[in-house]
Design a protein around this nucleic acid. Sequence first.
DNA 1: GGAAACAAAAAGTCAGACTTATACATCACA
DNA 2: TGTGATGTATAAGTCTGACTTTTTGTTTCC
Lengths: 233, 233
Amino acid sequence: MSTPGRGLHGRVLDTLGPAITAGEYPPGSILRTDELAQHFEVSRSVMREAVRVLESMHLVESRRRVGVTVRPKCEWNVYDPQVIRWRLAGADRPHQLRSLTVLRSAIEPAAAGLAARLATPEQCAELTECALGMVAHSRGHRLAEYLYHDVAFHRVILTASGNEMFARLGDVVAEVLTGRTEHEVMFEDPDPAAVTLHVRVAEAVRARDAARAEELTRQITVGALQELDILAP
Amino acid sequence: MSTPGRGLHGRVLDTLGPAITAGEYPPGSILRTDELAQHFEVSRSVMREAVRVLESMHLVESRRRVGVTVRPKCEWNVYDPQVIRWRLAGADRPHQLRSLTVLRSAIEPAAAGLAARLATPEQCAELTECALGMVAHSRGHRLAEYLYHDVAFHRVILTASGNEMFARLGDVVAEVLTGRTEHEVMFEDPDPAAVTLHVRVAEAVRARDAARAEELTRQITVGALQELDILAP
DNA sequence: GGAAACAAAAAGTCAGACTTATACATCACA
DNA sequence: TGTGATGTATAAGTCTGACTTTTTGTTTCC
């Protein structure tokens, strides 16, 4: 995913980022650039670039005469896709998956409502196509194909909302849906009710029925919450 | 806000970041590290650190033999607080304010619903205090004091939701509310109806009435949307 | 006309010397 | 004894210059 080896500093981040987000260095821990550079066997300049990136994610703070201190979790840029990936890849995965699902349940219904008003004919067609693809692969353990269409469906909804902030959550939703299929629940065929809901959302959007699109999408996200035993609204 | 002069590379970012987010360099534009370093009169190492930060925000992409290319807006990390600040400070301000307000209108009702279930007694008290503070300063052009309590109110709601993703939007909401008071609408005393809604939300949360807290908060955000002439859901 | 070899360009990496801010300890003085 | 000024060690910050590596675009040759 994304860019694995984009330079030495990236290689360092691939190790250090997950370590910090996993809580291996408790908040307030102090790292020293020189030591880190030695440990990772890179030059100080490379190490400094890595630290700058971590700093821009608010994972650490660099101060003269002190060192590089790890910031408390509540200050992290938790919307940074990279941070999200690191957390999903580590011990924090279940917790991260839950908070993202709650986020989804707030965003997606609103996005669907907007999409019903703003979607272009092309987007409507794409949506229908995705929903039909889900139907087509909803039986017989075609999980990979089903997932593909599911992700595409939610991406179209978020994009068609016309809101850039919503649209940028497409990757996050994709990550959640993929994670759900790969690791957590969903070993059997998907819930037929969920499939039907997607089809009906596509219909509602095409019919420009914002209220219905929103309500149906809410039902989808409520299902996602229930899968994780999160109290439904 | 935040940290103005955290090193030379930060000074460079203060100029280059806003320039890019303002669209001064159209997507696909190619910058060269050496030229930038010369232009900003800093060493290549400092310039490289700045570029690394921009790269981690997905504002640019650095490739060998090519240079530093500006990415299209749709790929930016639009949730990065720094990016949001840069955009709010530039020509993109009205558009950014709108998309953030739409985001608020999706998040805050959900957060209020969760807060009604999960808020601690201390948070309930804090909420009431904020609401009363708003009432106290809702007349006689006490806009600064009103704003202070308004921001605090929404921060408490987002924090009390128990969701880290919601909580981290506190700064964003603060930025939007402040922006509204300082530049856009709101030259006169705040709308009495809005003030009352805040008081009632505090009551609903204290009464553990999630549905009511959510609905009342939705009314608040609908008001915010209408102020910006955004079609209400 | 297409494939393979080549050259140039720009980012990437490294090492070392120097500067600067600052936490902490020390000391003088009230 | 407590408080403020002074000093010092430390780790980040900065700069420079040389070198490496990747990649693009060209050139050459079959």
